[in-house]
Each structure stands twice: as structure tokens, then as C-alpha cells.
Amino acid sequence: MNKIFPSIDVAGHLQVVVIVIFSILVASSVLFAFWKKAKPGELIDEMIIRLRSWWVICIIFLFATLSGPMATCIGLGVLSFLALREIYTHLKLRKTDRVALLICYLCIPVQYYFAYMGWYNLFLSFIPVFMFIIVPFFMVMSGYEKHMGRSMGMMTSSLVLSVFGISHMAILVCHPSLNEDPAMGKGLLLFLIFLTQINDVMQFTFGKIFGKHKILPVVSPNKTWEGFLGGLIGTSVVGYYMGFLTPLDQGWNLVLLSFSVALFGFIGDAIVSAIKRDFGIKDMGDSIPGHGGYLDRIDSLTTSASPFFHIVYLMLLV
């Protein structure tokens, strides 16, 4: 048990973030309570439900991030499983795809094992190289060719979204060269999650206040150019000042990194929205009150985690 949950030993600069996150939560809770008293309505009720989920999400995420690599890997593995199950629930697969799907589920523990061991090359090649060959092969073996291309495409891309992308958060805290100082990986992971969520909030706020020109009128009518640009700039600024979490010491590196988190986060959000629109559903599930399903909450992270890791890798280790 001690291996999974070593006594939480949080370095000084990580404590700052934990305090910041909880102050934001407490401040919003107080603010919302006053708002509800002054002006009760449907909007504030929905915001309070969302905020309550945020409390739970933040506590679980902080615990998984700070308590050690094994807890992080197990926690993210469960998250990947829940996300993949959510996608599969809506995919219209053929009966003959079931063996391939079983293999997709079995990928999760293997991928997180590689992440935990810090076997960088295996971790990187397991899904996009080996599984992209093996999963379609099992479909071929089932011997039923109608709509096979569609199934192959859907299954491999859902694997990338729900397993490969998310697992990059695990390798952040497990990669040997990134974790010579054990607080380094944790700091980077917190930086990534914090910025991705800040980007969501910034996009939402700027969109609500200044939003006029729709950026994706068909797929996601709520997104505007103003919100998108506000998110990019706001996140870069916040990222620059949160730089103490990362081992990067040059300002332009931090701005570039935060900028990419915002950009790729937006792309992930748009991709998941498009998939939902294709399935004809509003949310992927109803597991998190006020937020929809798990994949609705982590949509930005599915695509921002892997570019983030590789940019950090290029900046620090190459």
C-alpha cells in the first residue's frame, strides 16, 4: 500500500498551486452562494452543480497527481477505461468487431504499465505502431468485410483519444529523465491540467463577454473567434506566470508551451464535439453532474496532453 500511496510530500512550489486551486474553488463557492441569494435562477443552479463536481474532480486529481507515480498511473488508467467505455457505448460497431474491441480494452493496462516503468520507446510505439496493426488484423480475421474500413478507423481513433492521449499525463511523472527531481514531473502535470482548465474557463468567459463571430458554426455553435483568441492569449499569460511549476527557465519557452496547450485543447474540444454531433448526442454520458460524461470533461486533455509532453521533451531533453 505504501508503494501506491507514499506519504504525500509536496514541494514548496507545488503547495502554491494547491493553495491557488482551493482558493479559486472556495472563492467561487462563496460568490455563487451570494449570487444565488441575490438573483436565484436556473443558470446559477446549474453553475452550483458544476462547481460541486469541480470540487470532487480537483480533490481526486490533486490526490492522484501528488501521491506518487503508481497512484497517477492507476487513476489515469481508470479514466482511460471510463472514456473508452463511453465512446464504445455510442459507436455502432459490427458484431464481428468484438474481439478487436476486447483487445482495445486490454491495451489500457499494458499502456499504463509501460508508462509506469518509464519505457519511453515502448510506451510511444505500443498504440500507434503495434495496435494500429494488430487491431485491424483481428477485424480481418473475423472474416466479415462489410464496413470494415469504418470500424477500423473508429476503433483506432477512439483508442488514440481515450488511451494514448491521456496516458501521456502518466509518462510525465514516470519518465526517468524528467523525474530526476521527483517534484519535476508532478509540477509539469499540474501545469498541464491547470492550464487546460484555465483555457476552458478563458474561452468560455471571453466568448460570453465579447463573442460575436462563430468559429465552428456547424460543429460547435457556442465557440467564437473572440473566445478562442481570448483563450490563447489568456492561457499564455497565465502560463508565463505559472512557469515556476516547470523546469523551463526561458520566458518564450513557457509562452510557446502554454500557447500550444490552449491551441491543442481547443482542437480536442472541437473533435469531441464533432464526434458527439455525429452520434447525435449532446453529452457522452451523465456520470458527472453538470458536466455530462467523463469524456466531456477531459475532451481538451485528450489532445493537449501528448503535444505538451513532446514539446517539453524537445525543449528539455534534446
Binding site: R85, E86, Y88, T89, K95, R98, L101, L102, Y105, G285
Partner: peptide
């Protein structure tokens, strides 16, 4: 609702699927 996705008629293995 949805259990047929987990184990449809004619197969012997069940797979996770929200229902």
C-alpha cells in the same frame, strides 16, 4: 437499455458498455 451492446445475441463474451 444498452445491455445488448455488452452481450448481443449469438456471442459468448461480454464487453464493457454503459447501460
Amino acid at each position: 437499455d444498452g445491455l445488448y451492446k455488452s452481450m448481443p445475441k449469438g456471442v459468448n463474451v461480454f464487453l464493457p458498455s454503459n447501460s
